[in-house]
Design a protein around this nucleic acid. Structure first.
Lengths: 161, 161
DNA sequence: GCCTTGACTGTTATGATATAACAACAGATA
DNA sequence: TATCTGTTGTTATATCATAACAGTCAAGGC
């Protein structure tokens, strides 16, 4: 799943928001919400941050198990679900996978851009997009609780010039 | 999954676009694309059209099997994938389920509104939404091949007045 | 007519993803 | 200290999806 050669296709994980800062933010955010970022949970978030692209629950589990945490699926799913619930990670449904949130703290509704070639997942904040979706829902008399926006295609690095 | 009492929450399947018309359109569309809407495929589409909300592949399989078609998962998945590929049905990723396209023929990019209470799935055409997504992608240098937009919430019938 | 061809259907078997239910434990608190 | 709540880990199982292969059938070339 994450077997690409790691060239220039993963903008977020060598650049802008370094893992340590994100972890610190995550810690603060969890605290603020009365939730505990326990060792497994913290380590799970680190694993996601270290990854290129999104990771499946079983990929995460494998790493956790190798480090002495539990070896069974619920261990990974619980940690991942915790992170998702608290806005520290996102579930990418098209991939049955998870990715760290690259800007936790902000109350955002993101769209995910999934590169079919290098497997990178880019989180695009798009207020207008969210607005358009809510508008469309309102027209139908529908009240949105949460939404998923995912696009599959080619990232800038994988697009032939 | 589809065990609600069928009150007023499924706008599309007692109203606007009757199943027969959709089937006829589907037939025409398949023909036009050089594809064959064989008995299993047609019946699968009918099953989706008859359903309240979206159906899982195994739900569809159960019905097909009961009617003398194959009894194994690939039978359902193949038919469903055919329908999706030809724009006659949609995959709802959040539900691991499928739903008939309520307006085949139009080259649309739809958003799906999933009611958490009655399980209905409404297909909302939203040109602006699509436009906003493409715009957001372009900003990131990303080229979209296909996209998924799904929202979970309450439909009009399930929203307390 | 009949034979080749390619698409379709069905099967067995297996893989991949996800959760239910329970036991042990750790920290907070009355 | 006794108890409660939340967390972790386990076993077992449920759910979703596909690979690979064999038989079938309709359409077109000869």
């Amino acid at each position: 799943m994450t077997d690409h050669a790691h060239a220039f296709c993963c903008p977020d994980h060598s650049g802008a928001a370094p893992a340590e800062a994100i972890l610190a933010q995550a810690e603060a955010r969890a605290r603020a919400r009365g939730a505990r970022l326990t060792p497994v949970r913290r380590r799970t978030l680190e694993i996601l941050l270290e990854a290129h692209g999104a990771l499946g629950a079983y990929d995460v589990l494998e790493k956790l198990a190798a480090e002495g945490y539990g070896t069974q699926p619920p261990v990974a799913y619980r940690a991942l679900n915790f992170l998702v619930e608290h806005g520290l990670a996102h579930r990418i449904r098209r991939l049955n996978a998870f990715t760290a949130c690259t800007h936790p703290g902000e109350d955002h509704r993101a769209a995910f851009l999934i590169c079919a070639q290098c497997n990178s997942v880019t989180e695009a904040t798009a207020p207008e997009l969210s607005r358009a979706l809510h508008a469309a829902a309102r027209t139908a008399g529908f009240t949105i609780e949460c939404s998923t926006i995912e696009a599959l295609g080619r990232c800038s690095a994988c697009t032939p010039a």
